[in-house]
Design a protein around this nucleic acid. Sequence first.
DNA 1: AGGCTTAGATGACGGACGTCATATAAGATG
DNA 2: CATCTTATATGACGTCCGTCATCTAAGCCT
Lengths: 195, 195
Amino acid sequence: MARVTQAQAQQNRERVIAEAARLFRERGVQGVSVTDLMAAAGLTHGGFYKQFTSKEALIAEATGRAFGELGERLAALDEQHSGDHPAARRELLDYYFSPEHRDHAGQGCPATALGGDMARESPDSPAREPYADGVRDFARWMADGDDEDLVAIATMAGALMLSRATAGTELSDRILTAARRSLDDRAADRGQAPS
Amino acid sequence: MARVTQAQAQQNRERVIAEAARLFRERGVQGVSVTDLMAAAGLTHGGFYKQFTSKEALIAEATGRAFGELGERLAALDEQHSGDHPAARRELLDYYFSPEHRDHAGQGCPATALGGDMARESPDSPAREPYADGVRDFARWMADGDDEDLVAIATMAGALMLSRATAGTELSDRILTAARRSLDDRAADRGQAPS
DNA sequence: AGGCTTAGATGACGGACGTCATATAAGATG
DNA sequence: CATCTTATATGACGTCCGTCATCTAAGCCT
């Protein structure tokens, strides 16, 4: 009920951040209370402010964590395809526009799942920096030749958001397949007819 | 402090819906309380449930209202350009990717501003239907020849969301201009080289 | 071993939440 | 002008919110 090893405490802290990274994406920043977070980590709400200065500070850490997970996944894809980046990119798109991804926001793309919340954070919220950094890194990975493929990310995030918002209708699936085809076409255009 | 003309009451109801359509887009569904809504319409919170069965029901009405406003604006654009739809479309894009639109979500595109919230609404929330209908109508308007231009809407919504989430950084502006150029190019391709 | 430190638990705060029962007073009807 | 009706106001309910002061017990250090 009280003190715990430093290692254990550090581990608890990590678990809170990991749960936050998942739950914020799933239910939204406003849809998760400090009590929820601590309970998800097996603790009570009171200890929260021993580990974090505020909920806002945790949002920033959880955002960084979520984008960190994404970065690891992207690196793993590159490794899997041993340097064939276009192939890795295609596999990412397979996942990105899948019903699985649509239906499990908690494990999915943070740019999309946290975008709406981030847009409403105060202009100087500490969460905005890790978010923007994460988007930049993601855009850099998506680029096959450009510096950053911001439009690809926009199409991906928009299609995923709309698909989630219309889940349960035939529209939801059509959005995913239409976006997937469009990104394939654009990549092919660039590959076959580079200007 | 009490009774009011039927006309006046109807007007009050309209004002609540209009304020909801604005505030939900601006602060998010969870960021606006019933008390906020009624206060914005110059009333106190108690009368709310004489007009609406629940907050969820108001979300549905406000979503329909927001998309209705969008529809009127699109029709006005067509009229302004007297049937030259591609020109009307270009003018919409001018607005859509403008910093003004990014910085005033309350008056802006409901597909983007409400998308994140809608994705988290319960699967049978009454708000999902007007949202999906609104997206469908919007996609139909955007199409220059296809049945529906779902990919254009996805790129627009995604770019606007990311631009808002990264507002204050140079990235935010670059997302808007990159998306704008991409949509212009795609429209030009379709116009010059129809397959 | 004993004192210092601190992770976490407890419980409280002021306020806001969605909802509703009740009261009030003004429009509608006669 | 009296009565019926009803739109809005008042005020309360139980719950949850983010935050924090306080307590406690166990890890850490000498």
